[in-house]
Simulated assay, not measured.
Amino acid sequence: MAKRSRTKARDTETTPGEVGPRQPCPCGSGRRYKACHGAPGGAPDVFVGRPFQGLPSECDVVALRELVPAATAPLTLKDGVGDGRPVQLCSLLPMAAPAMVRDSGQIWLGLQVQHNFGDPARDLGAVLLKAFESEPGIVGLTDAPGEGPRLQDLVEGDSLDVTVHDGFDYWIADVDDKESMAAALEQANTAASPTARLASVEAAYWTNVGSKEHLRWVMPEPENELLDALARLHAAGKDVVAEGSRFVGMFRAHGLLAPVWDLPVGTGAAVLEEPAARFAADLAEALADTSDLTAEQRAARSGLANRQVTIR
């Protein structure tokens, strides 16, 4: 029994920023890390730890891929890419399609997809180029795309204009025969948790999952510096974003940390705007503080580092 316990301890011990062998692989495959990118030959392609770095609104892209049921954002393509055809980034498309060419010629790119070849940004670049050459309908990838441009190489701009939708009605906004998709649309809308993007800060999303509400906030800062800053705020009691809220931990997604707060049912998104802006200002001040952590702050940091929560 003692030997089995020691083995389990060795399997689960990690340093800050490292993925444990028994934890879910950050590539999103659903397998444990030791059976996926943590094992020789365990995954088909080289895993990119921060695949969306360099994209406009990287944190929002991560949120749309991992958190937000229904959202869209137009992409600005670089000169010479796609002959000026409009491209829209979508959190989710029907049947989790990687892309769709609409009858109008517009291209929709889906972030929440079934395939994973190690670098989602390269997958997006490949499927976008494929969509430029495809007839209206669904466009996908059946094999790893190999060498080629990543989405960062095809788009430009500093930020995205993200629109969070109440449901998936945008799927059929430009379709004449809406009745044929009514049942599928109703099913998708029923499964989507109400979600809103805060306007006062970047990449912070409120959601209502029925039994509770959450604030989930994707942040771009390096993990060690962010943990230090969050520990300073936690020790000072400055990590409250609404009355009755509780900072419960964070998750890692595509190389970024996303702190999570539990909120009392009935909180809503509007009341979070001012305290979220205040928290962002306090966080910036804490990030600028390079002094050594106090004993209380070190204890808070240790606790925070172990508070990993599930994304959904």
Rank of each mutant, 00 (worst) to 15 (best):
Phe52Thr: 12
Ala2Gln: 13
Asn208Met: 06
Ser104Gln: 02
Ser29Ile: 11
Val240Phe: 00
Ala99His: 09
Lys212Ala: 15
Trp171Cys: 13
Gly137Met: 08
Pro26Asp: 11
Val61Trp: 04
Leu215Ala: 04
Ser211Gln: 11
Ile107Lys: 00
Arg22Trp: 06
Gly105Asn: 05
Gly42Ser: 06
Leu111Trp: 06
Leu226His: 05
Leu92Ser: 08
Thr7Gln: 12
Ala188His: 07
Glu274Asp: 13
Glu223Asn: 06
Pro222Glu: 14
Asp161Met: 04
Cys25Ala: 02
Val62Arg: 00
Asp282Met: 04
Asp239Phe: 03
Arg307Ala: 15
Gly303Cys: 07
Ala196Ile: 07
Ala295Arg: 01
Ala253Lys: 03
Glu179Leu: 13
Asp292His: 02
Ala192His: 02
Thr267Ala: 04
Ala242Cys: 11
Val260Gly: 07
Gly17Asn: 08
Ala229Thr: 13
Asp177Cys: 12
Val61Arg: 09
Thr290Trp: 00
Ala286Ile: 08
Glu221His: 03
Arg50Met: 12
Met1Cys: 07
Arg197Tyr: 00
Asp174Glu: 12
Thr163Phe: 02
Asp176Gly: 01
Pro94Trp: 02
Phe52Tyr: 11
Glu296Cys: 03
Met95Lys: 14
Leu263Cys: 11
Gln106Trp: 00
Thr142Gln: 08
Arg278His: 04
Ile138Met: 14
Lys212Thr: 13
Gly20Ala: 10
Asp289Pro: 09
Ala192Val: 10
Lys34Val: 12
Arg102Lys: 10
Ile138His: 07
Ile107Asn: 03
Gly110Val: 07
Pro136Met: 04
Gly210Leu: 05
Thr294Asn: 01
Ala39Gln: 07
Gly42Asn: 02
Asp289Asn: 13
Glu135Arg: 04
Ser180Thr: 14
Ala286Trp: 08
